[in-house]
Computed example of a mutant assay.
Amino acid sequence: MQINGQNVSAAAGITLAQLLAQQGFDAARVAVELNGRIISRSDFDAVQLADNDTVEVVQFVGGG
Rank of each mutant, 00 (worst) to 15 (best):
G5Y: 01
L20N: 00
A17K: 10
Q18H: 10
D26K: 14
N35Y: 09
D45M: 14
A11Y: 02
D26H: 07
N7A: 15
G62D: 03
G64N: 10
F44T: 08
A17W: 02
G24A: 07
L19R: 01
T15E: 06
D53G: 10
G62W: 03
S42I: 14
A21W: 09
G62A: 05
V57N: 04
G36D: 02
F60H: 05
G5T: 02
I3H: 00
V32N: 01
F60L: 08
S40G: 03
V47I: 14
L20A: 01
A12K: 12
N4W: 04
D43G: 07
D51L: 07
A21C: 02
A28T: 09
I39K: 08
Q2Y: 14
L16K: 01
V8W: 04
E56D: 11
Q59G: 11
D51I: 06
L20P: 00
V58L: 13
G13M: 12
F25P: 02
E33D: 13
L19W: 07
G64V: 12
A27F: 06
G24D: 13
T15H: 08
D51T: 08
G13W: 09
N35K: 14
V58R: 03
F25T: 01
Q23N: 14
I3V: 15
Q2S: 04
I3M: 03
G24C: 09
Q48C: 10
S40C: 08
S42L: 15
A17Q: 11
G63F: 12
A12N: 14
T54E: 07
A21P: 09
N52I: 12
A31P: 01
L16D: 00
A11N: 12
I39Q: 15
V57W: 04
R41S: 15
Q59W: 10
S9V: 11
V58N: 04
L16P: 03
A28K: 05
L19E: 02
G24M: 09
I38H: 14
V61T: 10
S40Q: 13
V57C: 04
G62E: 03
A27K: 05
F25G: 01
G36I: 05
V55G: 00
V61P: 03
G36Q: 03
Q6F: 06
